[in-house]
């Protein structure tokens, strides 16, 4: 069983981005970039399945600029066997990413594709679902548990107010939620070894995929800051306000 894991290079989760003062976007130049944390969870799950013997090969793929190869190296240091870099503009839209991934899937013929449920930069939460749609595959999104049972993927999903388990015929798409696992560190010896693992580079334009952006960013603003409300003088007044003004109790 072969698992494909798409990974995205994003601004490191420890860094707080700043909105550019001209409102055209967020300032990302010169910021530390890392693998999207949800994608780390996806890589970890794929590697664990291989370590358990359920999978035979884990292939990482990233779509973006040349530096995304650092992210692929991290994936390989965590245990992916090889990787593919699809060169394109920085951060294409999920629809374009799903189309590129569909082309890669047709080439590599994986049995499972594990993705992070969303990237922490654009917060779209769409690529896995869109890829599943384009391929006509089943989707186990927001996964907190994945098991291979009788050749099917049994995925426990985080849904509002609890969990839900679905059984998917393989091939299938799984998107990782926070509680699926705690990803391992890329250790220094493994980072050194990952330098020698194969990394194939292809041009997105060679895949014959329409990557035209459908969304244009008109402006980006900082969220409004919260303002101080009112001081209440007593518990009775607080209860009254919460009941009748805020209507939250």
């Amino acid at each position: 069983m072969k698992i494909l894991v798409p990974v995205k290079r994003v601004v490191d989760y420890n860094i707080k981005v700043l909105v550019k003062s001209d409102g055209t976007g967020v300032e990302t130049a010169g910021l530390k970039m890392s693998m999207n944390p949800f994608d780390e969870i996806a890589v970890e799950e794929a590697v664990r399945l291989r370590e358990k013997g359920s999978a035979t090969e884990v292939i990482a793929v990233s779509i973006g600029v040349q530096q995304a190869q650092d992210t692929l190296r991290t994936a390989m240091a965590m245990g992916a066997d090889r990787s593919i870099l699809v060169l394109s503009e920085e951060s294409p839209e999920p629809l374009a990413v799903a189309k590129v991934l569909k082309a890669i899937v047709e080439k590599e013929k994986p049995d499972l594709v594990f993705l992070g449920k969303q990237a922490i930069d654009d917060d779209m939460n769409a690529t896995g679902q869109m890829l599943a749609g384009l391929l006509g595959w089943g989707q186990g999104t927001f996964a907190s548990k994945v098991e291979i049972v009788d050749g099917r993927a049994e995925v426990t999903r985080e849904v509002d107010g609890g969990t839900e388990t679905v059984s998917l015929s393989v091939p299938a798409i799984v998107t990782a939620d926070l509680r699926l696992n705690e990803p391992r560190y890329a250790s220094l010896p493994n980072i050194m070894k990952a330098k020698k693992k194969p990394l194939e580079t292809i041009q997105a334009t060679d895949l014959g995929v329409d990557m035209t952006r459908r969304l244009t960013t008109v402006s980006v603003a900082e969220p409004p800051t919260r303002k101080a409300g009112i001081k209440v003088g007593s518990v009775a007044e607080l209860v009254e306000k919460l009941r009748n003004e805020a209507k939250v109790i």
Binding site: P94, L95, L134, F142, R157, E158, R214, L215
Partner: peptide, 20 residues
């Protein structure tokens, strides 16, 4: 959880970039 699960899939089938 339902909306986020279903709509992007439908959008892909319609060749639309969803706006979440």
């Amino acid at each position: 959880a339902v909306g986020k699960n279903v709509l992007p899939r439908a959008a892909a089938l319609l060749d639309v970039q969803p706006i979440p």
